[in-house]
Design a protein around this nucleic acid. Structure first.
Lengths: 285, 285
DNA sequence: ACAATAGTGAAAAACTATTTTCACATCCAA
DNA sequence: TTGGATGTGAAAATAGTTTTTCACTATTGT
């Protein structure tokens, strides 16, 4: 009879897998690989599907979970699901208040991510990416809650291509910043809720200068999209009192990743150039 | 055409529920309510669990999904799961390259979120939240990739309590900023990878001033945690070339949400005060 | 080379979940 | 009130999943 790991009681699946990994036989290690590569999937897979994914038999899956100290596959699956459980009356069970709130927050972040990213239209995305890759200049703008996102996208795109900068530089008036936009330039405007008064007219002004506009917003916006070339709608609302920006952040990362792909070798080269320069300056620790 | 159910085809569960909602009998409407309140849950629940959650019998659940146009509960569940399953060898389906990359990115973001948040220790969390609620002053710091996160946390905490500000103000040298730290103050230092040279010594200097330090990092860091009061380890690495910050962002949001809870009425009041001021200034559109 | 040990998949057995059936309750129109 | 239509849960029937068994293979130590 195989010894049970004493305190395996409530250790998360990932820890158990990591601990056992070294002593796992071939087939079971393949299962471990699938699991580590797709954490969270376990909550949804059946043993047979997991077996198919790992290229082993369902019998092996069954043995694998016993070796990890679970009573059965079913028990492991339930534990994995508990992670995702929400405020539903279903499992008013055992979690401590604090860790319950952690998993509630996790849940809300995942929901925001999913509903933002699945709403994305691949065709629009393609157009935007092309604009990002080819626009002579990219200027970014975001007020208040959106400002940090504008900074993020500036930094990310700045690593990929040249001529990316904030629309408003410190010490510059709004009018001056807008006046510097040219026809063909791309403005990435982030306007999540709690937009300042006059936001719409800023967007309108930029569009009047002939620049193309990518507007990142949420559903609370009304008029601004009329002036934008593309609008991406992010979900930000959550059950907690504060908005979640991971959806918007993920959209921006997606744009950066795709733009880099579009630039291909060119982008790669620029990136390497910057990297080499950094090395020389010993900028990083 | 090999596809069977032509009519309801592939409409997402949420749409089908909304469309049918009006004409749903009592019991089935209760199921609809559970589903709408916990989108994404369907992928993980069994029909019997869903029945228990809605307070109806499993027979009703079975009928409900047929009414919605699915062949069976099982088919609906599979459709819900398809949304989530991604880069795994399971999903060899016919996604376009672009939407495949969107779901890959979604997958990586969710992974980062999960592994960052599940690693969190509720006890440490509690200590940090208490410090955030009670410290006389909070100063934030983040370089490069981490800078936008520092801005985020500054803005969030600033909505909850007083005396929250960046450690480095424009036009100030690093030494000046650090010199202003007092004993008892809390420094929120974000140091995700690509830290500038000298990062460790900055942390050390702050700690020497007697301030408590919350360090938000990733696993690539080595020495700095020795000087920090608390360290939170975020996952940032992904399959794509760029790091994902949603994990760190979620941690920061969690801290803000919990701090607000800790402050209770006090926090509420400050928030309302700011809100009222804004109203008067007509700052928002 | 040969046991002994450990790992594996196929298939049978045990188990669990879903769908169907059926009897009964409720609502509404005649 | 009656009769029909509709909705419901309990339980039987069915469908599906997991665990166990067993025969076989590969590896390791003697």
């Amino acid at each position: 009879m195989p010894t049970k790991t004493a305190d395996a009681g409530s250790a998360p699946i990932s820890r158990r897998v990591h601990e056992a990994y070294g002593s796992l036989p071939d087939g079971e290690r393949r299962i471990a690989d699938v699991l580590l590569g797709n954490p969270g999937e376990l909550a949804m897979l059946t043993a047979t599907e997991l077996a198919a994914a790992a290229g082993v038999s369902n019998a092996t899956v069954s043995r694998f979970f016993r070796r990890l100290g679970y009573e059965s596959f079913e028990q492991a699956k339930r534990q994995a699901r508990r992670l995702r459980e929400t405020g539903s009356p279903l499992y008013t069970g055992s979690a401590t208040p604090a860790s319950k709130r952690i998993s509630d927050l996790l849940q809300s972040e995942v929901t925001v991510l999913e509903s933002t990213l699945t709403r994305l239209n691949p065709v629009t995305l393609r157009e935007i990416v092309e604009a990002m890759a080819t626009a002579p200049r990219i200027r970014t703008l975001g007020y208040r809650n959106s400002h940090f996102l504008a900074q993020y996208v500036t930094a990310q795109l700045g690593q990929i291509r040249r001529a990316v900068s904030p629309l408003l530089l410190p010490g510059q008036t709004q009018a001056e910043g807008i006046a510097l936009m040219d026809k063909g330039d791309l403005a990435v405007v982030i306007g999540l809720r709690r937009r300042p008064a006059g936001f719409t007219s800023v967007v309108q002004e930029i569009s009047r200068r002939g620049a193309r506009i990518l507007l990142i917003t949420d559903k609370t916006i009304r008029e601004a999209p009329a002036h934008a070339t593309w609008t991406i709608d992010c979900q930000v609302e959550t059950a907690q009192y504060s908005d979640a920006y991971s959806g918007a952040l993920a959209v921006l990362r997606l744009l950066a990743v795709e733009t880099r792909r579009a630039l291909g070798e060119a982008g790669q080269t620029y990136l390497e150039e910057v990297e080499a320069l950094r090395e020389r300056l010993q900028e990083l620790e």
